[in-house]
Amino acid sequence: MPQIIEFPERHYVGARATITMTTFGLIADRIGEIVGRLAGLGVPIAGAPFLRYESIDMPGDRLVVQAGVPVATPVAGEGDLFAAVLPAGRYATLSHHGHPDQLAGAIESLLKWAGEQELKWDMTEHDGTEHWGCRLELYNTDPRVEPDPHNWDTDLQFRLA
């Protein structure tokens, strides 16, 4: 069941890419690289790695997505990796257990629930492209510990206006 949770600002190290629905690996695979860089610097991870959707143009099959890894305190960026902050605020959240390919149904459920509650997203639409203030998929399961994606846990966190 969806919930509304108030989150503080959260620091992270991220990478950004413009992708299509078939090239998600170009950004999702960066999570391991970011985790490795942080480990090399001795910086502990402060939460689940995530994908942050900046813009979504489904008819044009064009998405701008960040891969991010939370850290407790700011860490300097290097190369195309950058330091940033997830904005504080109220987020509609939903947990999903199962294969990431099944996330579309969970997302639809969260969007439908928010509509029924008359909630407004931190999102604007321009020429068919959604621009999100903060739309997250947090990956709570370490695939090195649980290799079966059918047993993975993912949290959706979409910021409310």
Rank of each mutant, 00 (worst) to 15 (best):
D153L: 10
T141N: 08
R62V: 05
R62S: 15
Q66S: 12
V145P: 00
V69T: 00
A46R: 03
K120M: 09
V13Q: 11
I45Q: 13
R144H: 10
S95M: 14
A67C: 07
L160Y: 04
A104E: 14
V64W: 00
S95P: 04
A48E: 12
R135H: 13
F50Y: 10
L136T: 01
T73V: 07
Y12C: 13
E54M: 08
N140I: 02
W113P: 10
H150Q: 13
F7A: 09
A83Y: 00
R62Q: 13
T18E: 15
R144V: 02
M123N: 04
V13Y: 05
G40M: 06
Y91A: 04
W132M: 02
C134H: 03
Q3S: 15
D155I: 02
D80A: 13
T141R: 11
M21A: 12
P59I: 01
F50G: 04
S95E: 15
A28Y: 14
V65E: 01
A72Q: 09
I31K: 02
E118W: 00
L103Y: 07
F7C: 06
F7Q: 14
A92D: 10
C134F: 03
R90G: 07
W121D: 03
Q66Y: 06
E125T: 13
G47S: 06
A72T: 01
P149N: 14
D80L: 09
G40N: 06
A92L: 13
A67P: 09
Q117S: 10
G32Q: 04
S55N: 07
R62Y: 02
T18D: 12
Y91M: 05
Y12F: 15
P74Y: 08
A83W: 01
R144F: 09
R30V: 00
D122Y: 02
A83E: 11
R37I: 02
A83K: 00
Q102D: 15
C134T: 00
S95G: 14
A72C: 03
E33S: 11
D148K: 05
D101M: 11
E118D: 15
R16I: 08
H150T: 14
V75G: 08
I107P: 01
E125H: 00
A67R: 01
P44K: 01
W121V: 00
I107R: 06
G36S: 12
D101W: 04
E108Q: 15
P70I: 01
L26I: 06
